[in-house]
């Protein structure tokens, strides 16, 4: 089963604005790859130029990327405001 389909089973209260912001520029390859592998929602990917792509839609707010990329690949990381974001019912 694809991760997108799995995330489709989890409930979210969506806010368009992202609570995580990537730093500009091309990240160090190995570090960027680790971010891609570590995000349990698979929200990080690399484009052809080695730039990091990220979408906050489907973010499970676990903080793993913050641990790995804070102050380097990520320049802002906060929990979503108010009660936006993931809404677990069965976990």
């Amino acid at each position: 089963m694809r991760i997108e389909d799995k995330l489709g089973k989890t409930r979210f209260k969506v806010r368009e604005e992202s609570h995580i912001r990537l730093a500009p520029g091309v990240p160090e390859r190995r570090r960027a790859e680790k971010l891609c592998l570590a995000c349990p929602a698979g929200l990080y990917s690399l484009d052809g130029d080695g730039r990091l792509l990220f979408s906050h839609l489907g973010c499970l707010e676990c903080g793993t990327c913050r641990l790995l990329g804070w102050n380097r690949e990520l320049e802002a990381w906060d929990y979503p405001v108010c009660d936006f974001g993931v809404q677990y019912r069965n976990s």
Partner: peptide, 9 residues
């Protein structure tokens, strides 16, 4: 039936 996917530190 998968009913939720979740993650946490």
């Amino acid at each position: 039936e998968l009913c939720e996917y979740s993650a946490h530190l």
